[in-house]
Design a protein around this nucleic acid. Structure first.
Lengths: 341, 341
DNA sequence: CTGTTAGCGCGTTCAC
DNA sequence: GTGAACGCGCTAACAG
């Protein structure tokens, strides 16, 4: 086994004090630079600590301080594509600030979520970030939680909570405006599950942008599931019924990949003959397609970082506000809408 | 803001005791079912606890018990595809056992890793799982860590450590044996970066299986990068130079997708004319290709769960052994090697 | 059955 | 400049 369990239990402050021949209090001061300690004894203490590879017990310290320097990350489903960037952003922001992150995966189960919440409170986390898997509102954890809570990606259904979520409406606008700027006017929309708020919001944004230009979608928006297969099938129908279309706005990169595939099969050249734009900027998909996929990036890592920052602020006593904040998204232009040279 | 900070700080045991009109010790016993407490007073305490929504302070409890009920998950790069299933498996296994997980992402930086390690030790985690992003051996954290350490995916380079890693050699064998069972005999190999141990191990396994059948690879194994683009390019070269091949063993699902794409372009029908097998069983890729992709699954979630179990055992004082253990992989058969009906 | 006492490891007054 | 004493929230021994 990789450790000497029985051997050296982690050294304690009194071990250090004893080895340095001083009292516990002096050792503490020396190590933390508090109070006035004679340079000689300070170095003696530091040497002792080094020799024992002393690491202060954060629990004991937290007990005194009343805060633990930990936060909880309560996710509803780790598997999702959207969790990871948010997680990374949050972990990164916290890591820099000396706080550590408890990861809890509720796996879409409310019971398990409640269980984990209890555990986090029992660990006296200083704050909690709740990360949902969709942008649809989710049940609030309630108002009687003794630490600040920020909802990321999936907003809380209680307006008194603070939620950060990507601006899908703006994303829809951005996509259409880009297509218009590319000179396209006959635009269709293929998206995923219509029960997702994301699907509806993106569509609404798209329609608004079209209306501003005095245009409409070609045909009805097509909804089914967030899969490549659906993208292929939808594109086949679409290009059969409306061969005049010159652009497709897809509700996800997966769908866009499917559309690209069918376009290829039908000898519609992308982007000259048909422009295709995806959503999510999932690089695995966007960078490996032919041509590479223009897409909308929700800046999720940024979102995670901001959620962390809000929790920080709240811990420091700053009022972080409430309500659902829609964070800006970003257009990433690649070869599926503008020909590369 | 979503919480009433200033208002109700988390209730403490003495709050409960006071409200129930008993001593702190009695309250503790009543809540934990320890010692003999009169039924009447017990209910009184429970009611008080309920009313104050009392949650025991895990830190204070840990201080006494000498263990915190937490473990550290030290990852080298959250972004990677392989982290998530391992993470999920571990979080799942621990969550069931009342222990919580500290997530630390070193982002491939040794300094940051050292920093996080220090933080974890300071938090007095009961154990640590180190998750690497490749199967190549990584530097050991050392032998003088006061808690058990298990390495997952990337094994430690010190044989005294315990490491769990997928059996890539067996995976290579499995892939070839399946192709042979399908009646294929002219098999080529397209893989990713040859600097990866994974690439070399899979190739070695493949060669062993071929040799057992008195066969050899057609052409030289082709190495470059783990991308779809490379899969496309490699397949074009391969099918040009060796049109007689009847199967391709790919080093990853991404590469396999590229190979499928080129096969389609060149009118080679899969699987009749050409069988293709991938690696990783990345469902996003494997289930969305045409036809769906046969692949090797490394059972990563299982690996995460086992790593957690080992840590559990070590905490309970069980000797968990040492050395690098190669965990079994699994063949997932789909339409790219056997025609669907 | 219940309350008192003694710490777990640490930081912080306050005397010396 | 240094050390003794107290308390953070809790549990485990004892007394009563």
């Amino acid at each position: 086994m990789s450790s000497n369990d029985s051997a050296s239990r982690a050294a304690t402050l009194s071990d250090v004090a004893q080895r340095a021949g001083v009292s516990i209090a002096t050792a503490s001061k020396a190590l933390n630079g508090r109070g006035d300690v004679a340079p000689a004894t300070r170095t003696r203490v530091l040497e002792a600590a080094e020799a024992l590879s002393f690491t202060p017990n954060a629990m004991a310290r937290g007990l005194l301080a009343g805060r633990t320097g930990t936060v909880g990350l309560l996710t509803s489903d780790l598997e999702g594509r959207f969790m990871i960037p948010i997680l990374m952003g949050a972990e990164d922001a916290f890591g820099a600030g000396q706080v550590n992150v408890f990861l809890c995966d509720a796996r879409g189960d409310a019971i398990r979520e409640q269980h984990h919440l209890k555990a986090l409170l029992s660990r006296r986390v200083d704050g909690i970030i709740v990360v949902g898997r969709q942008t649809d509102p989710r049940p609030s954890l309630g108002q009687d939680i003794p630490v600040p809570v920020v909802y990321a990606y999936a907003p809380s259904d209680d307006a008194r909570d603070l939620s950060l979520t990507p601006d899908n409406y703006a994303g829809g606008r951005l996509a259409i405006e880009h297509l218009l700027a590319c000179g396209r006017t006959r635009i269709a929309h293929v998206s995923g599950d219509p029960a997702y708020a994301a699907a509806q919001d993106r569509l609404a944004g798209a329609r608004a942008a079209l209306e501003s230009a005095g245009l409409e979608l070609i045909g009805q928006p097509m909804f089914s599931e967030w899969s490549e297969q659906w993208g292929r099938d939808a594109a086949a129908m679409l290009l059969g019924q409306h061969p005049e279309i010159d652009a497709v706005f897809c509700g996800s990169d997966q769908i866009a990949r499917g559309v690209l595939d069918t376009a290829r099969d039908l000898d519609r050249s992308v982007p000259d003959d048909l422009a295709v734009i995806g959503y999510d900027n999932w690089e695995l998909l966007a960078l490996n397609s032919r041509p590479e996929l223009t897409s909308i990036d929700a800046n999720l890592q940024q979102l995670g970082r901001q959620a962390a920052q809000r929790v920080f602020d709240a811990i420091d006593g700053v009022d972080i506000g409430e309500g659902t904040h829609h964070l800006p998204v970003r257009l990433v232009i690649r070869g599926s809408t503008i020909a590369r040279r």
